[in-house]
Amino acid sequence: MPDVIAERTLELTLPSGTQEGIRVRVWAPEYSPYFRCWVADVEVAGAGDTDKSHGAGIDAFQALYSALHLIPAMLVKYEDDGRLSWLGEGWTGVPAIDLTNA
């Protein structure tokens, strides 16, 4: 399995005021003979749940870009639980990637 190349811990502040860590990790892309393309795994874990997925592409760059694009969508499920933040700021530091104007 490839190495984790990026990791960030977000804070989920629940309505009660308690905080839980939400860990986001991205693994280095690797070629998958099974899928016949490059794959970069991504994981969001915390608050009693773990969600894993992967980005895919014709090269390592596209697989990594695809994996990064998944993170905002994977974080949406925490919006009903409380407020996500990073370093005490009101955002996660993970910008949504708009592909409609690409």
Rank of each mutant, 00 (worst) to 15 (best):
W86L: 10
E11D: 13
L64D: 07
D49P: 07
A102D: 07
L75P: 07
T50G: 08
A45K: 00
V94M: 11
G46K: 02
G48V: 12
G82I: 09
V44P: 09
E11T: 15
V39A: 12
L84Q: 15
L12S: 04
L10A: 01
I71T: 07
A102N: 08
V24W: 08
W86R: 07
A6H: 05
F35M: 08
V39N: 10
A96N: 01
A45E: 01
H69V: 13
H69Q: 14
I5W: 03
A73V: 11
P2T: 06
G93V: 06
Q19G: 09
D49W: 07
A47I: 06
E11P: 09
V94Y: 12
A6I: 02
P33I: 10
V76Y: 12
G46F: 01
G93H: 08
A60H: 04
A60P: 07
L14F: 02
D3S: 09
R25G: 02
L99C: 08
S53I: 10
D3A: 12
Y34P: 07
L14N: 06
R25Q: 07
P33R: 09
P33A: 10
R83M: 12
Q19S: 12
A63Y: 03
G90M: 10
R23P: 05
G88D: 14
T9K: 09
G90C: 08
W86H: 08
A6E: 14
N101P: 09
G46L: 04
P15A: 01
D51I: 14
D51E: 15
G88T: 11
R83K: 14
P95Q: 06
P95I: 05
H54S: 12
S53D: 15
A73G: 14
D59V: 07
K52P: 10
S16E: 02
S32Y: 04
A60D: 14
D81V: 02
P29H: 00
Y34D: 13
A40E: 11
M74H: 07
V42H: 09
E30T: 05
A6V: 06
